[in-house]
Design a protein around this nucleic acid. Structure first.
Lengths: 149, 149
DNA sequence: ATGCGATTTAGAATTATTCTAAATCTTGAC
DNA sequence: GTCAAGATTTAGAATAATTCTAAATCGCAT
C-alpha cells in the first residue's frame, strides 16, 4: 500500500502487471513491455530512489534484452507524463521516484540514504514569493543532514 | 549591492579583491589566488548561476594557468565552507550560486533561464514534517515552469 | 628562512547521459 | 486479420561531467 497522487492507492505486486499497464495508458503512453518493466521496478523500489543504472540492472533480470538507452527513454517518458519524478540531490546520478505526492527528499551526508519527508510545498504556502508572470508546474524540495545513525 | 547571509552586504567589484579575500578567510579557508578568482567570478555572475565549466572559462581570462580540477576543488571548498551553494536543477551540469540567503531556484522549461525567488523555506514553516532524529543542515527548493517569455 | 601540510596542476580515467541509424513494435484503418 | 505510419527499442559509439593521480608549488606557523 502506498500513497500516490493524493489518495492511498494499491501498488500492484510484481506479477500483477495489468495495474501498471493501466496507469501507463491512463497517462497517455503506449504500454510497451519495457515501460512496464521500468515502471514496475520503480514501484517495487520506491524507497531506494534508484538511479537509471540501478533500474537498468534490475530491469535486466526481468527483461535481459533491455538496453540502457531504453531505460533513459522510458524514464523520460514516465517523467514527462507525471508518473515519476526526477530527484537531483547532488553531483552524482539523477535518482527517480514514483511517489507523486508532495514530499521532500532528505539525503544523509553520512550514509547516503535518501528518505521521503511528507508535507506540502505549494509555492505560496511554503513561504516563497513567486513573481507575477511565472507559471510553476513542478516543485522539488531537497534537504541534507544527518539521519538517526 | 546584494543580500548575503541575511544582511544586505556589499559585493566587491572585480578590482577590489581584499573583500573577497576577507570572506574566504572568515570562512576558514586559505586565501589562494585560485579561490579568489573562482569566488570572484561567481559573485560577478550570480544571476547566471554558472556551471563549473562556465566558471572555468571565465576564470581562465583572469588566470590562464588555472585548471578544471582546481575549479572543482575551489567550488567544493567554497560549498563546504558555506560561501556558495550547489544548485541541482536537471540532469545537466551542476550550477553554483553565491547567494546564501534562503531562496528558491526557478528553471524556465522554455528558455532555460534560472531565476532566484526570495522567501524562507525553514523545513518547519514550509510545511514539511521532519521526523525526529533527523538533523537538517541544508535546504534546496527548486521549481520549474514557464517564465514571462 | 624553513618545513609541513594544504593546494594546484595536466592529463588520464571514470561515470552519466545522449546520439545514431537500423530493426521492431503499437495502433488504427481497412 | 493485414497493413502502413509513426513510435519505440536497440547496441554501440560519442559526448559531457566529474573524479583521480602523483608530482610541483604554495601558505603559514615557527
Amino acid at each position: 500500500m502506498s500513497d500516490v497522487k493524493g489518495r492511498t492507492v494499491f501498488v500492484p505486486p510484481r506479477r500483477m502487471r495489468t495495474e501498471t499497464d493501466e496507469r501507463i495508458v491512463e497517462a497517455g503512453l503506449r504500454p510497451t513491455a519495457q515501460r512496464r518493466v521500468v515502471y514496475g521496478v520503480l514501484l517495487d523500489h520506491a524507497k531506494e530512489h534508484p538511479t537509471a543504472d540501478e533500474i537498468f540492472m534490475q530491469a535486466k533480470t526481468e527483461k535481459p534484452e533491455i538496453s540502457m538507452a531504453t531505460v533513459y527513454n522510458c524514464l523520460d517518458a514516465l517523467v514527462k507524463h507525471h508518473l515519476v519524478k526526477q530527484v537531483h540531490l547532488d553531483r552524482a546520478a539523477t535518482r527517480y521516484c514514483p511517489n507523486m505526492d508532495e514530499h521532500a527528499h532528505f539525503l544523509c551526508e553520512e550514509c547516503g540514504e535518501v528518505t521521503d519527508f511528507d508535507g506540502t510545498a505549494k509555492p505560496r504556502t511554503s513561504g516563497f514569493r513567486v513573481p507575477r508572470g511565472f507559471q510553476v508546474t513542478q516543485t522539488e524540495m531537497n534537504m541534507r543532514g544527518i539521519c538517526p545513525a
